[in-house]
């Protein structure tokens, strides 16, 4: 029982990372109907940027976090501008963009391996690890940090989407691009902004996971990328609260495999969840309308 509760807590912390990533998937899907498979690699780039800022420039954790988010936002905008926007302007079918996204993902993974080598590096301990014991539960300050930063970013995101002009424009574009354009909204700029926000969240997740697991490598984005995509589908792709809830649920499911003693099956269990969700509730928990084929 104690073990179970401990794993539930661990699941929430891990799930926060998945939730941050899932938000990027769901926002981009919501606005242009694209599953951006390169999103997990932006998270990897975030971890690398964080790594260099801390080891080379000796910046402290918070400055690193903010700078990494900014730089990852630029990376996301650049990917959209170079890879997806030309296709969109030429009216390419969605499947073309999807395959392009997979291509961008390979490019980033192999490009980073080529530039920095494929070996894993150890992420510097920018914040000194402190262990707490609350009752029988072990919690570290880094786990708390992950949870608090994630929740703060989600609240900020919710504010941007619901209350600001740009958020309003994002919602309008996601409903009807042409009508949004006709009321004077710059659609390209709005889509670019969406990529920026999603990528900034991925960058934050990358720095946080580096701190948590103390390691990074060019392929680190693959599995979390796919799991966060599952989280987004689980929550109902296109729904922002859905992505957050989905992220935490996937985190919980994954850590529960440790309690059940089937931890070597953890990835398989998560994929099995995807299959079950797609069979039973293809629109996810918060999904509204029937999904479109991509």
């Amino acid at each position: 029982m104690e073990e179970l509760i401990q794993q539930l807590f661990n699941g929430v912390f891990l799930g926060s990372i998945y939730a941050l990533l899932a938000l990027g998937y769901t926002m981009v899907y919501g606005i242009i109907g694209l599953i951006n498979f390169a999103h997990g690699d932006v998270y990897m780039i975030g971890a690398f940027i964080g790594f260099f800022l801390i080891t080379e420039l000796h910046l402290n954790f918070w400055v690193t976090l903010v700078l990494t988010m900014g730089l990852c936002a630029l990376v996301g905008m650049l990917i959209e501008f170079l890879a997806y926007r030309p296709l969109r302007h030429h009216g390419a079918p969605k499947i073309t963009s999807l395959i392009t996204a997979i291509g961008v993902s390979f490019l980033l993974e192999n490009g980073m391996s080529f530039l920095f080598g494929g070996d894993s590096r150890s992420f510097p301990q920018a914040i000194k690890l402190v262990n707490f014991k609350v009752g029988f539960i072990h919690i570290t300050n880094i786990q708390l940090l992950i949870l608090i930063v994630s929740i703060a970013l989600m609240v900020l995101l919710q504010f941007i989407v619901q209350k600001t002009k740009m958020g309003r424009a994002m919602r309008a574009v996601s409903v009807d691009q042409e009508a949004a354009n006709i009321v004077g909204i710059k659609v390209d700029q709005t889509i670019s902004f969406t990529f920026a926000i999603g990528s900034a969240l991925a960058g934050a997740a990358g720095v946080l996971i580096g701190l948590y697991y103390n390691s990074l490598d060019p392929l680190m984005g693959m599995a979390p990328g796919i799991k966060s995509f599952i989280a987004a589908v689980f929550g109902g792709i296109g729904s922002i609260p859905g992505a957050a809830i989905g992220g935490w649920l996937i985190g919980l499911i994954e850590t529960l495999t440790f309690t059940l003693g089937i931890s070597s099956w953890k990835d398989a269990v998560v994929y099995a969840v995807l299959i079950v969700v797609l069979l039973v509730r293809p629109n996810g928990i918060f999904g509204k309308k029937a999904g479109e084929k991509v």
Binding site: T164, K165, R168, A169, V183, G184, I185, K186, F193
Partner: peptide, 12 residues
């Protein structure tokens, strides 16, 4: 309000 987007400039 979304239709006023282009009429109101605001620094993000």
């Amino acid at each position: 309000m979304v239709a006023m987007t282009s009429k109101v400039s605001e620094n993000p």
